[in-house]
Write a protein that binds this DNA or RNA. Structure first.
Lengths: 223, 223
DNA sequence: AAAACAATTTTGGGCAAGCAAAGTTAATTG
DNA sequence: CAATTAACTTTGCTTGCCCAAAATTGTTTT
């Protein structure tokens, strides 16, 4: 059994892994993600490497082995199913469930997780639109673009939001930019680095301006 | 914040405390309850005593301070509310929820606990009939007797079962001796140390024989 | 009262994780 | 190319929690 600490390292290695599969995740980024000093990350990764859950190349970085990836996906499955349960069944606000799930993900049993999955009818996405890996460890891909690179003036639906901080999600809430919301991108200003978005908020169309940095966090699907 | 370990010690000190309030809980019993060696219990209790959560008298034993008792009751409240949630909302079998709650009790936030309490409509008892302390740390007492000392031949209702082991509870399940079940005690045999109990099981009255030791685990309330 | 016993405490040591700070490498810049 | 810098690793130390075994204490028993 992997300790809570190891589960966290594996999860962060998975989430922070570079887009290019051949690349290694640097220790600096990992230590930031886990929230420990670089030295701690190095020695911990050495230990996890001894358990064959990651490959570790000194001065290059770290990368999950297939076994490590399966474990990471299992943790992620727990995390995301719990988030959805907290929102749908327990009625918590989606801005607060991330922190809660960070703790719960390490203690729910397989049996309880199976019940949660059943009650939610085997959902594919969590409240933020993040995909829930299957029990077999498969991630169902949803290929879609962000508010930064989707076509202009076409109706789309928000599918996923890449930010878990409670404050940001509360802002998203009041703007009506939740997953499922119908929006269209009216214009982009490359000089000001802003995007103008039209949202239907309580029946009325509203205009909203977002920076490129924030626009990039919203994934949309053309409807 | 008390660590998970300290929470467990406090909970066990509360649950194992001797009936007589003036008595101390011996270190031997505590170490058994927590599942550590006596030496470990001694040093841990020393530490908890430094935090003024217990009084510790070498060679006599240990006893909760008011602050320690409040913390213990808070853990117990979490444990029992979680058990009830797992049975009522998540549909787990009541024989398996104890083990699950042992883990969860240390990680649910106050906010989540409040939601659980609300969803269950502020319940007073968990699936085993154990009282759920209030948020203010008050235990509502239900004064009732056991199958060992209740009057003969009068209809009663099972109110509480003092055993959390999954195997025992599964046996209780098949006998129909669950909390809420209507039973009456037909006779007691002090020589054989057995009690004969009548249960209404799937519409039919059935006789059941229990040992004194087991009978003592069932609390009943006259209806 | 002395001896034996049971319960408890002390001692010494281990493992998992963490930090701070000193020491290495590798990359960047002058 | 040498010097500086940034990233990384190593080293030494701390804390929390645990165990095994030796030492102590209080209580029985002889």
């Amino acid at each position: 059994m992997a300790s809570r600490t190891i589960e966290n390292y594996l999860k962060q290695i998975y989430l922070s892994r570079p887009a290019d599969e051949t690349q290694w995740l640097t220790m600096g980024k990992l230590s930031m993600a886990v929230g420990v000093t670089p030295g701690t990350a190095t020695s911990m990764v050495r230990a996890i490497s001894d358990a064959h859950l990651v490959e570790y190349e000194p001065r290059a970085g770290v990368r999950l082995t297939p076994a490590g990836e399966q474990l990471a996906l299992h943790v992620l499955r727990r995390h995301r199913l719990i988030e959805l349960l907290l929102v749908k069944v327990l009625g918590l606000d989606w801005s607060e469930v991330h922190a809660e799930a960070e703790e719960l993900e390490h203690v729910v049993s397989d049996r309880l997780l199976a019940r949660i999955d059943e009650i939610l009818h085997h959902p594919a996405f969590d409240p933020h639109g993040d995909p829930i890996p299957t029990a077999g460890g498969v991630v169902r891909r949803q290929d879609c673009c962000t508010v930064l690179d989707c076509p202009l003036d076409s109706p789309t639906r928000i599918a996923r939001i890449l930010d878990q901080s409670a404050e940001f999600l509360q802002y998203v809430n009041v703007c009506g930019l939740l997953p499922g919301a119908e929006i269209s991108v009216a214009s982009r200003n490359h000089q000001a680095q802003t995007v103008e978005v039209m949202v239907i908020k309580s029946g009325e169309k509203q205009a909203l301006t977002l920076s490129f940095a924030v626009a990039e966090k919203f994934f949309v699907q053309t409807t």
